[in-house]
């Protein structure tokens, strides 16, 4: 691996590292999900700056070109990151779904309560149904 390529990879990795670090600092990315990116950057940097280590690893795994070792490692990491995202996504999906359903059911309960209160002659001033709909309202005829 040429010295030039080593420098390029080191700079790119460092930039990515600090970019994500800054995103975490400004709370754009949750640290929990950034950790795996940091790990990837650090491993890439170590491999890049210690060519001997990489050559040995490449030799051990039967990879002919040391640079391919780097690619393989990077790709493996990306797969792990993607997998973790799939897990998170699935979980989030389930949670959002249940929240949505609970909100709908709560609104229904409120509606029933309001009706009962109105029957008892108690007025409640709170916009529950309809007014929460942000879409433009058209006049409809039934």
């Amino acid at each position: 691996m040429s010295f030039r390529l080593q420098i390029i990879i080191a700079i790119a990795t460092a930039i990515a590292f600090f970019y994500i670090g800054n995103k975490v600092r400004t709370r754009v990315i949750e640290l929990k999900y950034a950790l795996v990116w940091f790990l990837l950057a650090i491993v890439l940097l170590i491999m890049d700056l210690a060519p001997n280590l990489m050559e040995q690893a490449a030799h051990l795994m039967g990879v002919t070109l040391p640079i391919n070792m780097l690619t393989l490692l990077g790709f493996g990491f990306v797969l792990i990151i993607l997998y973790s995202f799939t897990l998170v996504l699935t979980n989030e999906n389930r949670r959002t779904k249940r929240l949505t359903q609970e909100v709908a059911l709560l609104n229904k309960r409120l509606e029933i309560l309001e009706e009962k209160l109105a029957e008892a002659g108690i007025e409640v001033e709170s916009p529950i149904s309809g007014t929460a709909d942000p879409r433009p309202q058209h006049d409809i005829e039934i």
Binding site: T96, T100, A104, L105, K108, H138
Partner: peptide, 22 residues
């Protein structure tokens, strides 16, 4: 996206409204 919700309201139908499309 259409008037389903408002029709239900106007007609007094028993309706659950999911706040996010799910």
């Amino acid at each position: 996206d259409d008037d389903t919700m408002r029709i239900c309201e106007k007609m007094g139908y028993n309706c659950l409204n999911l706040p996010i499309r799910s």
